[in-house]
Each structure stands twice: as structure tokens, then as C-alpha cells.
Design a protein around this nucleic acid. Structure first.
Lengths: 267, 267
DNA sequence: AAACCCGGTTCCGATATTTGGAACTTCCGA
DNA sequence: TCGGAAGTTCCAAATATCGGAACCGGGTTT
């Protein structure tokens, strides 16, 4: 159950599929562009777009005849962000961590097989903003991604690993499930993950997962740098931040999802 | 056309209506709670919820049987935020403004009859307030709201004013369209708006609209304070920031919507 | 212990919606 | 003037949705 694919159920599924497609282009799209690559016939796609526009989920620029995601999404997302993510709880701790380490700090959650960044503190800008919230990235070659994978229940891990692209972004990128499982074992051992230029050249980071009381992965925090300094210098601060977040998490009785499966290091 | 009410068209409209309802509660909701107040019968609401969950738009906590907005929304909203809003363009200018005035800074857009905050810079990171992007507020008693209303085309203004609640948040709140029109005329004259404790006691702000080349309202920026200092001190910096944002807006040839109507001070 | 209530879930025929191939209409550029 | 591409509308057939009612599991009352 709970399959990943979309466009599945009924009209609503189709509409959301179209919505996703529009969002996927990083720019306003014309109807015809959208059409090629759409699994639905012309008239259907057209009608769905109409509906979405009338609902405010899409914005149609009448001048250029292009569609773009609408602001209603932002409004809705606020609610999601505020109550369905770690971000509100982690907020003050990220502030403090960012202060302490003086580097860019990320908070991410696992969304399907991808990493979803839900908050961020920029190194330079002393004041945060969530330009990055909502951004997604690969799980298999980012610090936060690997930190979370390492503590996933076996069944879930298998499923997620099967969905990775294993694209070799750099020479250091891990490109196979087997190699990844070894890496994850090491991460479990030492309690934190590194990303040593596996995603972007010159970018390294150290990351730790945030676990619920039951040991379920709730998210991950990372400290990123593009400089030469040793990452481990940030470990104490990072560990402290994650501990505090997990603590608050427990207190606030946050949605700790259903099944209380054991995650185990099998394989 | 382009009416405001929702739940209008077909299944998709209904689904989005339900989604909105869930988001409206600031917390996970039980099915039964949602049911009372839902315009749809039990079975229908149930099926819609199921669909939304399976689509990742909602998250169902199987333990407590509660629904909450899902992370897919955040992912989608990122796209909306990045391309359908002023925020990405205004980013650096907000940073600078925030630096210069040392107070809380907001960037907002008009979304229907409400003000939608799309970005923010906190004065001191000490306040455990979370990201305001996506938050909505009343248009008739906020600085950004009034600044934008003042430069709306007459037809649109009439429509928007008709949709305000005119709830008297404080003693200073403007509570009638007539009074508002006078206020708006004054705002047009001087080029900027004030909110003198009209929304929250002790909170004052000064705001200016961001206009496109054609004179259409694209958003507004405000500087907020809870202290005693004179607001006009911030005017130069605010004006400069707005000017720079508008400049970039022009360069980047940003979506300047269709009709190029005159806004006029009639009445 | 039986009866009862209350969320939550499922059924299923009637009904309204969606579907999508095809035709039509602008609007260009040649 | 012609040809083609993008966008829009039609409409009967096919299908998904609708929603009243029944069902289920569990807790509480009688």
C-alpha cells in the first residue's frame, strides 16, 4: 500500500499530477509544452489546467498563455510546514547551532526516496529565511540523506535504496546499494554521516539524524562547508543541537508515526 | 469569472476544499471533527481524504487517526514561491534593508482579499517565531495590505474591499470601506502607508508598495517595530529598497499580469 | 452480559462527471 | 492566400463519484 506513483486515483490524482508537472518546470509553461509528456489527452489536460487555475493552484498569465504554480500553494504549505515538520520545533536550535559553527546549516526530512529540506540557516546572512524549504535533493549522496537512511528500518531502506538514481555527481559519489549499505553501517557505528564532495565538488558536510523516542527517523541536521577546516570540529555543537531537538520532540509529543518497527543492521 | 469561492468545480475543487479545511486547523484533525463543518456527506469526505492521503497531500497518522497537511505541499510550494512571487528577486534587498533598519521586515503580496506574507527578516533571531512565508493576514489593517490596496485599480479595489471582515482588532482599526478609501487616498498622496496599532496593540509599521513598470501592484514591503522610535526614520531605507526591488523586477521581465488597467483615485 | 453508542469504514445502485476523438477557431509566418 | 500550429469547444459514451444506509470494532452504560 501507499505506493509512490502518482496520477493514480481518479480525477484528483490526475489534477495533482498535472500540477506537479507544471511545478517541475522551473518557469512558466505553455499549454503545448505541457501537453507533450503529459499522460493525458489534450482535452483532458486542458480541462484539468482550467480547474486548477480556477482553484488558484495555478496562475495563468493571459498575456503569454503560460501556467505557473499559484500562491494558494504557498498558503497551504505554510500549514504543512508549521505542523507536519520538525522545523518549528527545531527553529531555535538551528539558530543556535548556526551561531556556534558559523557555517550553513540544513534541516531535512525524508520524503519518499528523496531528501526534503525544510529549513536552513545561511552562513553569511545572519538572519534566516526558508528559501530552501521545499527543495528536494538525492538521499544517497547528501549528508542528511545518508544520516537518515542509516537509521531506517530494513524494509523501508530496501524500498528507498531501490528508488535511488545512483547518478555519479562526482568521483566520490557512492553508486551502488551494496557500497551504500557498508557506508550506512559505518554511519550507524559512529553516529554521524559525512558528505565528502559526493554531491558537489568542494562541498563537504557532517550530518546527524534526529530520532524519535521510539528510534524512528524524524529528520536530520547538517553543517556544510566549502572551506578546508576539519568537519569534526563541528561535531560537538551538532550533536548538542540534535539532542536538544530530539528532546523537544519528545516533550511536544510530536506525531511519531504508527508502526514501531525495529531498524536493524542486517545484511 | 475567477470567483473567489472554492469547492466549486468538480471533484478536484471538493478535494482542495477538504485540503484547505485540514490546513485551517493548526493541528492534526480527526475525521469526525472534520466532518462537522464539511459541506460534503460522510462517505464523500471520507473518500476525498483517502485520495489526498494516497497522493501525499495529507498525512494520516494511523495511531491517532488524525490528518495533517503533507510534505508534498511544501515541495510544490517551493516551486510556486520560487517563480510566482517577488521573494527570490527581493531577497538581497530585504537582507540589506533589514541590516540598515535593524527591525523586522516583511514582504507581502495580495492573494485574493488577503495579504500573503512571502518573506520576512526578523529583527532579533531571539523570537521563537517561525517562518512567515505562507502566512496570511487581513488587508485592511496591516501596513503592507493598505499600501497595496491604495494602488489597486478601482474595479479590483471595490471587489477586495467588499470581502474584508472589518473586524476591529484594536481601537485604531479602520472599520468601514468609506473610511478606508480616505485612508487610501492619503497613502497615495504620501506614497507610503502606516499601520499604527491597527492590527495589534503596540505594533506599528511603515510600508510601501512595489509597483511594476505598468503601475500594477506586485507586492509591498514593510518595516515593523514594537518600540517607540519614529517610523519615518526608516522611510529612506525602505524607499530605497522598494526602488531597487522594482528595478530588478523590470529587468528580470517578471510576470506582470495581463490587463494594463489604470488605477485611479476616484471617489 | 446484553444493549447501546460512536467513531470509522465499506457497499452499491443511481447519477452526474469526466472522458477524449474530432472538429473548429484564431493567429502566425510563408 | 494558404498551411500549420496552438488553443478551445463539442458531445455521446464510459466511468468515477455520490451518498444513504448498513456494517464493524471497541468502549461505555444499563
Amino acid at each position: 500500500m501507499n505506493v509512490q506513483r502518482m496520477g493514480g486515483d481518479g480525477t484528483v490524482g490526475k489534477a495533482l499530477d498535472v500540477l506537479d508537472r507544471v511545478a517541475a518546470y522551473g518557469r512558466p509553461v505553455r499549454f503545448s509544452e505541457l501537453l507533450e509528456g503529459s499522460p493525458f489527452p489534450k482535452a483532458t489536460t486542458y480541462r484539468l489546467l482550467q480547474t486548477l487555475v480556477s482553484q488558484g493552484m495555478l496562475r495563468l498569465d493571459p498575456e503569454s498563455g503560460t501556467y505557473a504554480p499559484g500562491m494558494r500553494l504557498v498558503r497551504m504549505a505554510h500549514a504543512a510546514w508549521a505542523q507536519s515538520s520538525l522545523a518549528p520545533i527545531a527553529q531555535p536550535h538551528l539558530d543556535r547551532l548556526s551561531q556556534e559553527v558559523g557555517e550553513t546549516v540544513h534541516l531535512a526530512q525524508l520524503d519518499g526516496a528523496q531528501v526534503l529540506y525544510v529549513d536552513k540557516r545561511n552562513r553569511a546572512a545572519k538572519v534566516p529565511m526558508y528559501s530552501d524549504a521545499g527543495k528536494v535533493g538525492p538521499a544517497y549522496c547528501t549528508g542528511v540523506g545518508k544520516a537518515m537512511l542509516a537509521f531506517l528500518p530494513e524494509a523501508e531502506l530496501t524500498r528507498v535504496l531501490a528508488q535511488q538514481s545512483w547518478h555519479p555527481f562526482t568521483g566520490a559519489t557512492i553508486t551502488s546499494p551494496q557500497a551504500m549499505r557498508e557506508e550506512l553501517a559505518a554511519i550507524r557505528d559512529r553516529g554521524h554521516a559525512y558528505d565528502l564532495e559526493e554531491h558537489e565538488p568542494g562541498i563537504r558536510c557532517i550530518a546527524m539524524p534526529v530520532l524519535s523516542a521510539r528510534g524512528r527517523v524524524q529528520g536530520a541536521v547538517s553543517v556544510t562547508t566549502d572551506g578546508p577546516g576539519p568537519l569534526d570540529d563541528h561535531l560537538p555543537a551538532l550533536r548538542a543541537a540534535v539532542t536538544r531537538i530530539a528532546g523537544d520532540l519528545r516533550d511536544w509529543r510530536f506525531p511519531d508515526k504508527g508502526e514501531d518497527q525495529e531498524w536493524q543492521a542486517s545484511s
